[in-house]
């Protein structure tokens, strides 16, 4: 027990120090919400579905709050698990806490392309019954950046 606590404390302080040292540069590293938006914009353009004004937080919000049909009956909306107010923590159907979706509350969101893609794939299929389009993904992230 004591050894483990010590190890955690040491690891924690090391991470803190490292974080302080590299704090200014992390935003510039590959894998940021902006990078994700750039990628989705390219995909949307390639698919020819990118509208004039680019991504829209309004459309993202509508997607987030709406009740959808076509998905699995237990998960009609993104807000089945995430909160209507995206600055609040959500909960999985199995009771695990989900950190707030708003970027202001959970700054490390929308930065790991693999993770983002994995969850868009799963959650869109659960809620909408299909994968989300690059436009929808871009709108969604735009909305969350604004929160």
């Amino acid at each position: 027990m004591k050894k483990a606590t010590l190890a955690i404390a040491l690891a924690g302080s090391a991470m803190l120090l490292g974080g302080v040292a590299s704090g200014t540069s992390t935003a510039a590293l590959a894998g940021s919400p902006q990078e994700m938006l750039k990628r989705y914009a390219e995909e949307a353009k390639a698919a020819g579905i990118m509208p004039e004004g680019g991504f829209s937080a309004e459309r993202g919000k509508a997607l987030y709050l709406a009740d959808h049909k076509g998905g699995k009956p237990a998960t009609p909306s993104c807000t089945t698990c995430h909160m209507k107010d995206p600055t609040q923590p959500g909960r999985t159907r199995t009771g695990k806490l989900i950190k707030p979706m708003a970027l202001s509350k959970t700054p490390d969101r929308y930065s790991d392309p693999e993770k983002v893609e994995k969850w868009f794939f799963r959650n869109c299929r659960s809620v909408l019954g299909r994968e989300c389009t690059p436009l929808e993904k871009g709108d969604f992230i735009t909305f969350m950046i604004s929160q």
Binding site: A74, T75, R93, R122, R125, S126
Partner: peptide, 11 residues
């Protein structure tokens, strides 16, 4: 892909 009413798919 249909994991107890949810999609939990993994590559």
């Amino acid at each position: 892909d249909d994991h107890y009413g949810e999609d939990a798919s993994i590559d």
